[in-house]
Write a protein that binds this DNA or RNA. Structure first.
Length: 394
RNA sequence: GCGGUAUUGGUGAAGUGGUUAACACGCUGGUUUGUGGCACCAGUAUGCAAGGGUUCGAUUCCCUUAUACCGCC
């Protein structure tokens, strides 16, 4: 390649000049519903391109999918990524991101971004710690320096407006799976009031806002939460409060089944925090369109890889001399170029590349899963697909 | 050749005349679902150089041998 060519190609990938394709809220387009289930095939038109659903979104809490560059994330086929209001609020602060020209420019990512509201962090960071959930908002302590913090529905939305993500989430309470019916009932009602306050605060015309359905595994609470949230007319709806605290899969599936019937057909449905390949399949069958989860990147850093035969641990001694890829059938960068023995060596010696390669593989694994689910919906054979998948995946 | 000191698991080591030999690393497994996480959890010496003795009881005291290191001829 000549020098001029290098310079030209550089110019093409320079993200400081990337522009939005559109200036609008998202548009969900339902293409078809699978014949035998509630599984849906659709598209979401965003300011940064159109994505197909069902879709999995990797998590990049602090404006980075841990270990990977935006180019590497895109190479896995991921469209939307997730970032977090709470973390970016503390560091570097939403004003700095705003000065940078918004989250996309700040992190040099020209795909759609969804920001979580911080509601989950109140649950996960302040777990077993002092926190005070009031009608006004939540008092809790910074996980960085212990400073007293106060997050309200209004504050969360204001921060997200400045971050300029494509999709903002309502500030909800995410109660533990162990919460009592009485507690959940009050919590659901408060979350609805918070959702209303957040919507009234929302200003960014190019940013969509989602409402969150709560209510644990109780049918009446999920129904109530869904109906009341939908009345507020959001751009999309999510099912929250699942996969928490060792909640059983049965309860998770119930939470979905009890919520979905009350969500509008023409809006995207997002199951928050899921997950496991099996749960993604079950979610799709129940009518969920998009998912997010830290699992592919977290287990990658801990040495594990998704495969068609289940999770494997690349730390295991049996891979010392295994000079084959993680999966022969996988088209990801890691599988095309590296062996299990090499990745095990990287993990064993604490080299960064090990976790990076596994992150790429695991994200690609879930993206391929959703690609196959889309094909299965087109062909009305999603139940067969599930059976085939479960036969091998243990 | 003589004298001294030492010898505890894969490694570095603690320890005591008396129930299961500390701790760390390593090793071997496992966990992880809107990321306080390159994290966490669990397992990992039937034996304290070898043999013999003293003792109710010895890794701990004594003797012999082996090995290592340090002095002296």
């Amino acid at each position: 390649m000549k020098i001029e060519e290098v310079n030209n190609s550089k110019k093409e990938v320079s993200f400081f000049f990337f522009e939005r394709v559109n200036l609008m809220k998202i548009e969900y387009n339902l293409i078809k519903t699978e014949k035998n289930t509630k599984a849906r095939l659709g598209t979401i038109k965003t300011n940064y391109g159109t994505v197909e659903t069902p879709m999995f979104m990797p998590v990049g809490t602090k404006a980075t999918v841990k270990g990977l560059s935006p180019e590497e994330v895109k190479e896995t086929g991921s469209a939307i990524i997730l970032a977090n209001t709470y973390h970016l609020w503390l560091r570097p602060g939403e004003d700095i991101v705003e000065k940078a020209g918004g989250l996309h420019k700040f992190m040099n990512y020209d795909g759609p971004i969804l920001t979580d509201s911080g509601g989950f962090q109140v649950f996960s960071l302040a777990k077993n710690k002092k926190k005070d959930i009031t009608e006004e908002g939540v008092h809790f302590k910074s996980h960085i320096d212990g400073k007293a913090l106060f997050l309200t529905p209004e504050k969360s939305i204001e921060i997200q407006n400045k971050l300029d993500s494509d999709i903002a989430m309502s500030f909800d309470e995410c109660p533990p799976a162990s919460a009592s019916y009485e507690y959940l009932k009050n919590s659901v009602e408060r979350t609805i009031r918070w959702a209303k306050r957040g919507k009234e605060t929302h200003r960014n015309p190019n940013q969509s806002l989602f409402g969150i359905v709560q209510g644990g595994a109780y049918e009446d609470l999920r129904k109530y939460s869904a109906i009341e949230t939908v009345k507020l007319d959001f751009d999309g709806y999510s099912i929250g409060g699942v996969a928490n605290d060792g909640e059983s899969k049965e309860d998770m599936y119930k939470a979905i089944d009890y919520s979905i019937p009350y969500l509008p057909e023409n809006k995207v449905r997002y199951l928050m925090g899921v997950g496991e390949p099996i749960d993604i399949i079950e979610g799709v069958i129940r009518g969920v369109d998009i998912f997010d989860c830290v699992l592919p990147t977290r287990i990658a850093r801990h040495g594990q890889a998704f495969t068609r035969n289940g999770k494997i641990n690349l730390n295991n001694a049996k891979y010392k001399e295994d000079f084959t890829p993680i999966e022969e059938s996988c088209d990801c960068y890691a599988c095309k170029h590296y062996t299990k023995a090499y990745i095990r060596h990287l993990l064993n010696t604490g080299e960064m590349l090990g976790g990076r390669l596994l992150s790429i593989h695991n994200i690609r694994f879930l993206i391929r899963l959703t690609e196959e689910l889309r094909e299965a919906i087109k062909e009305d054979r999603i139940l067969e697909y599930k059976e085939e998948f479960l036969e091998k995946y243990h």
